[in-house]
Write a protein that binds this DNA or RNA. Sequence first.
DNA 1: GTTAAATATTGACTAAGCGTCATTTTATTG
DNA 2: CAATAAAATGACGCTTAGTCAATATTTAAC
Lengths: 243, 243
Amino acid sequence: MAVSERKKREYAQREDLIINTARKLLLDVGYLDLNMDRIAEVTEYSKGTIYQHFSCKEEILVAMFFESAEKSGKFLLRGSNMQGAPRERMVAMALGYDLFVGLNPDHFKARLLVQNESILRKASPTLQRKLEGSNQHNMSIVSGVLRDGVTEGHVQLKEGITPEEVAFGLWTGALGAYVLISSEVNLNALGVTDPKKAIWANMHALLDGFGWRPLSNELDYLETRARIFREVFPQESTQMGIA
Amino acid sequence: MAVSERKKREYAQREDLIINTARKLLLDVGYLDLNMDRIAEVTEYSKGTIYQHFSCKEEILVAMFFESAEKSGKFLLRGSNMQGAPRERMVAMALGYDLFVGLNPDHFKARLLVQNESILRKASPTLQRKLEGSNQHNMSIVSGVLRDGVTEGHVQLKEGITPEEVAFGLWTGALGAYVLISSEVNLNALGVTDPKKAIWANMHALLDGFGWRPLSNELDYLETRARIFREVFPQESTQMGIA
DNA sequence: GTTAAATATTGACTAAGCGTCATTTTATTG
DNA sequence: CAATAAAATGACGCTTAGTCAATATTTAAC
């Protein structure tokens, strides 16, 4: 039936409107002042209609985070599909993720909230499961490239170490760094003037430590970096002002 | 005056009682169900008295986190004072921090909230400054050991890399990992069955990557680990059931 | 084109929690 | 044992999450 098709489209559109409004409000006024009346006001729908889409405030937050988690996966995927050695593809994923975070400053604001199990728990089981699936998928992209590195003989993991555990290390390093960057922590006072540079150095140290060839002194990764921006993320890197 | 001394002691005691009650409630019922009436009820003081100590709910949360941040610093310090090579002292700090997190499961719950700038901002400027000082101090303990490593010629950092940036890498790796462990993220589903083992492996890979001697294949760090538990954290490691 | 049924939207209302402050209780001092 | 100072209280005002009966709109039937 054509009518119900249009309805569905309109419904989905409104869902996006609500999520994006909440996103904007989260950035503008912060978590504590983010309220349902305001969302209703800005979207120009009534509160009742908002609740038709989302069972509670937390459901919106988690949906917001889910959406950007999915989006970040796309950046990882594009990075992983780059032409080059597995370690270069790894770098491409890292740079892609960095671009994503820069272009979506709300992502880590939402993440901090959703990481809080008290908030996550209030979302519907369906949404929680979707989010877990998204996490798993993103992780599998990273460990897939790692596995390629192993298969192609560029890296030999020690007895008992799995690609997933190395991916975990890259993941947690990035997560911790962006958590600090996205929060009010005064990194300058901690002696870290250029966190992005530090992330880059630490990532390469980690990969070097696992003996993943080509090591950072065997290849000009700054050249690789430039190529990645040029070939894989041309639009995004210019948008972020990275030539 | 003896009376006002006693008063001050009682006041400080009550402050601890409030913080510890909030801590317990945060673990028991979670952030969303943590409320002032409940804190008042459990402490057996009235709400007005609670507000005599803390200007708002967030002030309690931040004070709670500040207290455990200070406590974590003590563990880092004890680790850093260990007898041994700088890299061994580094390992001792990492293990000390891990023990701290295990013994204070509320720490990362509070951290996730306080990391949220909307929540932090509501706390008093004084407390915010105290917290920043605590962060700085903890960071300086870690980078101090790193500096020792450099001075004593065990590690040569590349041009433009500072000890603080390496400390940042260790810090963010740990932060991200404990954030995930402390949240509801299903690490098992992500292929990480033993996150603690992964943290250990990744830390050593990072230090190896920076070329910090003795490298992980030059020294039996599992032996070092056992010694650290035995000599530096005997009480805590038995409490945590690590022989 | 009109009307009945179905569907979508609304916002007044309830419940709950934060933070205040006039009142009461307790402690101190002369 | 007052008189005074300090501390503790909890009812109250205000904001906000979430509900639901009433209203408006759309669709379908004739």
